[in-house]
Design a protein around this nucleic acid. Structure first.
Lengths: 308, 308
DNA sequence: TTCTGTTTTTATAAGATATGAAATGCAAAA
DNA sequence: TTTTGCATTTCATATCTTATAAAAACAGAA
């Protein structure tokens, strides 16, 4: 059995899917169906299946394939939660180094390769992502340039004002269509966050759920340009929030607002939902966001009224 | 003297700058200042200077450098207009092949390299751009996926509705600031288009001027997220319009509307300008765009009322 | 000093080969 | 039939070398 990045990722994703009950106990897991699900070939899926058998999540029957174990091992849940394959560690390290001015504005590929111990291909992948997410660009000659975005507290406001322009409007798109499944999923997630002891949920998860909520809703507009625009600024935002601390009280408030929006949508009151979305975003803009900055004294003071 | 892609591009750009009167006759062109202007080193600039001396645009004095020629050669203007170094021919070919279904939805790098005769590095650069412009993505395993955007007439509408959400709003941003220079430049360009015999202006230029107008205006908002979002959809739109024909009558109408918007801005009536911008875009959405599609019978019928 | 002209150094591109990983084809089992 | 398990093919990365382009350093002219 091999153990590539890809099969590792599939292992974990599949584990999550199984442990969260997407498949029934004892159900036959067909290799091809999993391959289709993640749009890869059966080869890395196979490796993942073997890994999951070793972990006791699956059972193997010769020439019949893999089946969900009747009794899932107790520790599996935590194991797969904790050991998420941190893809692109270096990506975040570079982003952070740039945000904290530990990298000059212009760098050569050479420098990055050496400093972060990257191969050509890894570096390419990383630069590709940074370009896509809008904070790096190729210079005309040699070298790359970091773009001066998302470094300041001001950028945070700019992103929120941009979101105020697109998110409520997206709901009024002619193609907007309410999808019960999506709404139900999101309600479940938001309610879970309110119920659970927030201390137990890792902060990345909390942030991811927040972005997910907004992205899933904007998708309902069926206008992909709204969706990709939001995705883009969210990725940018996440670069900043990577270092941020979360104010749990405000998060609770945020979740309840999300639930209110969902409720309106479920009742088909789209215009009201759009309006509430605008208010929701404007609230976050007015320093009520659950995120506290900690990379510079100034911006922290700037963004936070004393905790209350 | 060498002749790289980069020095060619600088040669042409510098030629344009000189011929359009950015520099005075006889003015000393300092190598470093040009290098700074294009943020490259003096090496490719030097090659460009030599090329421009050969072309008769510059004059060289030993140990003193290059100077704008007192009499610019007559044919230079046309020469540099016509011989724009078409960067990334292959990029447009691939885009076009995808838009016309001559490429499958998923491709390997191998396929692209062979079919378009690309080296690894060229391909990388190209994919980087396609990812940035939002119409390709890397698959998890091997291969790349074309995204189903901008292929249909519907996509055109979606882009316009997205622009209606951001462009008028951007004008109402707190950071919005009127910049006379920008407004004057744009007015000159738009008036020039109205004055000139439109048959003489290459269609790419016309389209570029249109995008430029909107992008320069949205920049005034001083919120980079609005600007990059517009840039992104414009790039997407250009992929489509690359194959389109232009309706000159509608273009005239479009230019006058642009001028009206500029006028309002010059008078500081921003709210009115914002409103007019919304109407302007909504007009384009209602099949009054100066662009006619010609890649499929259906979409052409769909988008065009009979020419009148 | 400032800027040019030239040299030196460094950075990326290109091409070849070896290796490893993913996709695909196919026989055999269910 | 469908699906597995394995074999084969294809694709892409890693690494090295050479070539070439760009950046940086520097001497000397203005």
């Amino acid at each position: 059995m091999r153990n590539s990045d890809l099969s590792d990722r599939i292992t974990h994703q599949l584990a999550q899917d199984i442990l969260s009950g997407t498949f029934d106990r004892g159900q036959h897991i067909r290799a091809q169906s999993i391959a289709d699900r993640y749009s890869v070939s059966r080869t890395p899926v196979r490796d993942a299946l073997i890994a999951l058998e070793t972990a006791g999540v699956l059972e193997h029957k010769q020439n019949r394939g893999y089946f969900v174990a009747e009794t899932l091992p107790k520790q599996a849940q935590e194991y797969f939660q904790a050991n998420q394959p941190e893809k692109n560690m270096e990506y975040h390290r570079i982003a952070e180094d740039w945000l904290t001015d530990r990298l000059p504005e212009e760098v050569t590929e050479q420098l990055l390769k050496q400093r972060y111990g990257l191969t050509k291909a890894k570096l390419n992948e990383l630069l590709l992502r940074a370009v896509r997410e809008g904070w790096m660009e190729r210079k005309d000659g040699y070298g790359w340039r970091f773009l001066p975005v998302a470094k300041t507290a001001e950028a945070f406001d700019e992103i929120y004002r941009f979101r105020m322009a697109i998110e409520p409007t997206a709901m009024l798109e002619p193609g907007f269509e309410i999808n019960r499944t999506v709404l139900d999923d999101q309600r479940r997630i938001q309610e879970h966050m309110l119920d659970a002891d927030l201390k137990d949920v890792p902060p990345e998860q909390l942030l991811r759920n927040g972005s997910l909520f907004h992205e899933e809703l904007i998708k309902l507009s069926n206008n992909p340009y709204f969706f990709t625009a939001l995705q883009r600024v969210n990725q940018m935002r996440r670069l900043m929030e990577y270092r941020a601390e979360i104010n749990r009280d405000r998060l609770v408030n945020q979740c309840s607002e999300h639930l209110e929006i969902l409720e309106l949508l479920e009742r088909g009151e789209i215009a009201d939902a759009s309006y509430l979305m605008r208010r929701h975003l404007s609230g976050a803009l007015k320093r009520k966001s659950p995120i506290a900055w900690n990379w510079s004294e100034e911006s922290e003071r700037d963004l936070n009224t004393p905790a209350g």
